[in-house]
Design a protein around this nucleic acid. Structure first.
Lengths: 378, 378
DNA sequence: GCACTTTGGCAACAGCGTTGTTTAAGTGGA
DNA sequence: TCCACTTAAACAACGCTGTTGCCAAAGTGC
């Protein structure tokens, strides 16, 4: 069950197991999964799985879809997630562009809209544009049960911001947003639940839910206007105590190095962007790799993913450069193979897709991974 | 409930709630806590708490201890943890010394033994010394129920090592231990369950369980022979994918800086130890602070604790020096007060005490915080 | 001494996964 | 064609969980 500092009762137990089964159905995708496989993976008895899947089918979340070949007896019935049982909107508010996507329960993006946006044009303009594009996606009609199938809107914005309260902080370059309660304002305006998170976190969550096998740990490093990170630790998006984790760009890499816009010196972001500006991409990649190595050593993650416009422009150079530094680290430590590096991909829609997952993830038991607020733990 | 990728049934639910209540009893300490407070904190109904505490009292883990003053009605009955319902041994194997402690369920150290040790003298010598000192602690007799009250032995050793398998890796300075299955060998020899972890992790766990309020996030930075870290995220000890997290010392802080014993350049450990060797403690503190600032930004933790022999020798200088760097960081970010820094204290017994908590923590629901191994998450 | 408040146990209950059993739906040899 | 065998999955009874409704116990204060 999910970590919590509160007591658990029978409904909580039921939700936990149902979410677990749903997550396995989601992970299985179109191939589906049989009841007995679900039982093996969850550790529940086959009978328990039968009961749970019966409920899910009654709720319209799962359906039978064919049979596996017989292995000498009655063939297993394949179960699949019903993708259109629920939808979420993902909204990526970038500095100069807005991307809105409609994603179904299976994680498939069924509609996309893009529009130019000036994040500095003021709240009213931005909210209006957001509302317009979200509405233009075309919502799915309520299901046969009459239940609304649009679960909510996930919003990804440049950080820093407060995920817990849904409030923007001093968005780099646009200080006028400081303190703006974007989540509540937008929720009121759209009449839908809204979840707000950093763009890097949204992208990392999206990647985490697509990862096979699920449950690993990785860092998503995003090099664009700035340099940020999204951390997935043990399959869960890590947001930190005040939901501000992932400040990767202002890590000091060169004490007494060149000044950074943040007021510090030798920050990896300043060094990296300077190298990019000089056209020395190999150097930028090496710098990024050094920062990644620091992170890998500290957190013992098992994968590094790179994204962002700058990376996308020279994907191979960055992947090779970062990979080389991590290979050196592995050689020095002598403990197994190097941590693999890859480009995140996602053709510019990764953040918006991930934003939608901010809403969908709780259905699969990936909610409340933000942080226990106190009480106990350890 | 604790994060997991397995299904949960009624016994699991019962254990979860019992552990939750036990943890609150432990946290309350000698002051105790009433049933209604337990109900409020857990979110369970008072009746459920009554049932759970009745079970705990029947098992000898909890007891009634007086009453609170009346607030106009029947006064609340205070419940307390029974400290001698369980014990654990904590064993700290350091490079030149062995420390063994006997700790009760409430976390009180009831016996301590210390002996010189040469970690390079070979397995047989070390195991013999460990067995001798553990036996000399004087185990508590089995309880009235006849149940053995010594729950196990927690062993803390210099890293790197594999907590999951209980195997040492190349202990810095003593490569002959590489691959030694210390946990299983010692468990066989003592006839008790053994848990193995890094010294920094043990210390961090001990600090986490003593923290008030519980559930926060902090980094324990240990500067002694080397420089390592123990991370507590959201109240839980974070060990990483291969239980190797906390490699703080070989973080690059000065690209193209002086060479480090690890083969890299400009590692914080090399810089820091060099400054200490020069007698420039202020510089060492500032270096440590810079590394701490990187970590604070990346993980958004809310406390930094310092320990280790070098720190203990000049506690104030380190606390002030690291604090100053973190204060600068907070000023630059402009987001609230600086992350506080403090000395961990513990008069050289912190690691051994924490090692005992490796065994006791599961009783209070702090088990399996290591990592989900796959399946799902996020 | 009585009305009131608060605590906390007792009893009945609904709902969870588990266990034991039965039915359904295949394979494969005689 | 039949029948023994295997495997899948539902049905039924069960034990145990926390919850709800109720009531006794133990205080305060007029």
């Amino acid at each position: 069950m999910n970590r919590s500092n509160t007591g658990a009762n029978l409904p909580a137990l039921r939700n936990h197991n149902a979410a677990l089964v749903l997550d396995l159905l989601r992970t299985a995708g179109e191939a589906g999964i049989s009841r007995l496989e679900l039982a093996e993976r969850t550790g529940l008895t086959p009978q328990a799985v039968s009961k749970i899947t019966a409920r899910l089918r009654a709720e319209g979340l799962a359906a039978e879809a064919g049979h596996r070949p017989s292995t000498g007896g009655k063939p297993r019935t394949v179960l699949r997630l019903v993708p259109d049982a629920g939808y979420a909107v993902g909204l990526h508010l970038d500095r100069d562009e807005l991307t809105a996507v409609l994603v179904d329960l299976a994680g498939t993006t069924v509609a996309t809209r893009r529009a130019p946006l000036d994040l500095g044009a003021g709240a009213e303009v931005v909210l209006e544009a957001a509302s317009r594009e979200v509405a233009a996606l075309g919502f799915p009609p309520p299901g046969p049960s009459g239940r609304q199938r649009l679960l909510g809107v996930g919003v990804a914005a440049p950080g820093p911001l407060d995920h817990g309260r849904g409030v923007l902080h001093r968005v780099t370059g646009f200080p006028q947003w400081d303190g703006f309660a974007l989540r509540d304002v937008l929720s009121e305006r759209l009449g839908l639940p809204v979840v707000l998170d950093k763009d890097t976190n949204a992208a990392a969550l999206g990647l985490a839910l697509r990862a096979r096998p699920a449950g690993g740990s990785f860092a998503y490093l995003h090099l664009g206007t700035g340099l940020g990170a999204g951390l997935v630790l043990g399959g869960a998006l890590y947001r930190g105590a005040r939901t501000g984790a992932g400040e990767f760009g202002h890590q000091t890499l060169q004490m007494d190095g060149p000044p950074c816009s943040c007021g510090g010196r030798g920050c990896i972001e300043a060094l990296c962007l300077a190298a990019v500006a000089r056209g020395d991409i190999a150097r930028a990649a090496r710098l990024l790799g050094t920062g990644a190595a620091n992170l890998v050593g500290l957190l013992d993650i098992d994968r590094v993913l790179l994204g962002g416009r700058v990376v996308a422009a020279e994907e191979d150079v960055f992947v090779r450069g970062v990979g080389a530094v991590l290979a050196e680290l592995a050689r020095r430590e002598g403990s197994g193979p190097a941590v693999p590096v890859a480009a995140a991909g996602g053709d510019g829609r990764a953040v918006a897709d991930g934003a939608a997952q901010l809403v969908l993830a709780p259905v699969f038991g990936h909610a409340n991974v933000a942080f226990p607020s106190g009480g106990n733990g350890a």
